[in-house]
Structures are given as C-alpha cells and as structure tokens.
Computed example of a mutant assay.
Amino acid sequence: MSERDSSSSDRAKAASHAKASGQASFGAFVRKPAERTDGKAKEVQTDVANAGSDVAEMRIETAASWPADAVEVGAIVDAYGLKGWVKVAAHADAGRGGDALLSAKRWWLLKGQERKSAASLQAKTHSDSVVARLGGVADRDAALALRGTRVYISRSEFPTLEADEFYWIDLIGLDVVNLAGVRLGKVASMIDNGAQSVLRIEYPVIDKNGKPVAGERLIPFVGVFVKTVDQAAKQIVVDWEADF
C-alpha cells in the first residue's frame, strides 16, 4: 500500500469513527455557488518558537473545562518520525476546512473517557494527512501512545471564510424553507458527492403504520438551488418544491 493509499484509508477510518460517535464532525467547508477554482490548496504551517513551560506541557482536562464549541476535526492515527510528531487523519483536507488543524493554537484530545489538551507547536500538511508537534509529546513512544485519540478544535479558532463560504458544522440544524415559505425540514448532515456538497434534510412524516418517522430530502448546495443562508436567523432559503 502506498503512503497516499494509507493516508486515504486513515482519513476514511477517522470519518467513520466520528459518525459512529454520534457527534457532528467538522467536514469540509462548502462554497456557494461553486467550489474554488484556484488549484491545489496552499500549505499552511504554524510554528510557536521558544515555547514556555506552560505551553510545552500537556494538560489534563475534564468535561467542565472542555470548550463548549469544540468540534471534532480528525483522529491521531500514528507517530510521525522519531521526535514526537503525530500523524492525523483529518476529516477535511487543508483548503477545504482542514486549515483549522494547522492554525489552531490548542488541540483538545479525547481517548476513551480521558480528556487532555496540548498546544500545537508546529503543524503542516504531509501528503494527504496533517502532521504536528504537540506540547508534552517529546518522543516517538509518547506519540504512539496517542494513537486512536480524537482531535477537537474550538470553533472560535477556525479560520475566517469568505462571505460565500460556510463550514458544514454551521449549516447542520438550520431550518430549510423554499421560496413560497414552505418549511422543508432541518439540515441533518452534509454529503460530499465529489462534485459538490449536498444538504441532507430531514422532516417528519407518518409511515404506512401510522408511526412518525423521518423523511429525507437531498438538495445540492449550489447557487441555482440555494438562495440565501442566514445563520443569525438559522434559516436557509432554497428554490426547491416541497414535492421533489
């Protein structure tokens, strides 16, 4: 298996883990009305030089000290090199939302029931993964001990997007209505079909046995269908008929 194949497999496993956890994961950002056309994403690297002891140590955290806006963005899948760097399978590539891993100053780490946090001293893209040097992780053995750890970033540390760009995490839960004012449901999740992002909308229906169940609509997140996204009003307006 090539390094690229291995990285893709790691990323798929991390995304599957996030889905199984029942928590909304980061996902890519989506751009309306079309994706970026400026080619390959530019590599971003952070570097905290001459870190003090308060930065260089890993902290034990509790549910109370955990950020309320923490969003799962990937998982540590391996050590990288001999000097304590870790390899992360990110839920989104750099340039499609994964830049949060590169720019965040602190990573919040969850393995089983154990919560920790560490300063991100350096982080950069490497092939299809992100590799990083974390405070308190001094050698390969310490890095290997972090395998299987889920990585969270505070939403407040996500890079700012352009006016027509939105993080998936910010779209989930918004009400969707059409131009006639008919409520179509709520955004339950986002799907990337390779060509574009898709809103997966759930709405209440009654099945043939008279029981309430969730119906589903899939609406491509492109300008021809998505007219406005008002995060303050928690609403998306679409050009989409209720019987589609």
Score class of each variant (00 low, 15 high):
residue 65 S to I: 07
residue 132 A to N: 10
residue 162 E to N: 14
residue 52 G to E: 11
residue 154 S to L: 02
residue 243 D to V: 11
residue 187 V to M: 09
residue 217 R to C: 05
residue 224 V to D: 09
residue 20 A to C: 15
residue 90 A to C: 11
residue 51 A to V: 15
residue 226 V to R: 13
residue 101 L to E: 01
residue 99 D to P: 03
residue 179 L to K: 13
residue 68 A to F: 03
residue 71 V to G: 08
residue 61 E to Q: 13
residue 164 D to Q: 15
residue 173 G to I: 10
residue 209 N to Q: 11
residue 121 L to T: 12
residue 9 S to T: 15
residue 23 Q to M: 12
residue 197 S to C: 05
residue 109 L to Q: 10
residue 123 A to D: 05
residue 236 I to E: 01
residue 59 R to Q: 12
residue 166 F to E: 13
residue 80 Y to T: 04
residue 23 Q to P: 00
residue 30 V to G: 04
residue 164 D to C: 10
residue 116 K to C: 10
residue 41 A to C: 02
residue 228 T to L: 13
residue 165 E to Q: 15
residue 234 K to E: 06
residue 126 H to Y: 07
residue 94 A to G: 04
residue 32 K to I: 06
residue 80 Y to D: 08
residue 191 I to A: 01
residue 223 G to W: 02
residue 67 P to W: 12
residue 118 A to V: 05
residue 216 E to P: 11
residue 221 F to G: 09
residue 31 R to L: 01
residue 147 R to M: 07
residue 202 E to M: 03
residue 28 A to D: 02
residue 75 A to Y: 15
residue 188 A to T: 07
residue 85 W to S: 04
residue 2 S to W: 04
residue 208 K to Y: 09
residue 53 S to E: 14
residue 147 R to D: 01
residue 186 K to D: 02
residue 151 V to R: 05
residue 183 R to F: 01
residue 202 E to I: 07
residue 173 G to T: 05
residue 53 S to M: 14
residue 119 A to K: 14
residue 190 M to A: 11
residue 226 V to I: 14
residue 95 G to D: 03
residue 186 K to Q: 09
residue 195 A to I: 01
residue 23 Q to D: 06
residue 203 Y to V: 02
residue 86 V to E: 00
residue 189 S to T: 05
residue 196 Q to L: 08
residue 18 A to N: 07
residue 107 W to Y: 15
residue 127 S to Y: 15
residue 172 I to P: 07
residue 23 Q to R: 11
residue 244 F to T: 04
residue 144 L to K: 14
residue 241 E to T: 02
residue 18 A to D: 10
residue 199 L to T: 02
residue 237 V to P: 02
residue 147 R to N: 11
residue 134 L to S: 14
residue 159 P to N: 04
residue 140 R to G: 09
residue 138 A to G: 13
residue 215 G to P: 06
residue 188 A to L: 08
residue 124 K to R: 12
residue 4 R to A: 12
residue 6 S to P: 05
residue 26 F to W: 08
residue 86 V to M: 06
residue 116 K to D: 06
residue 165 E to S: 13
residue 38 D to I: 06
residue 106 R to S: 11
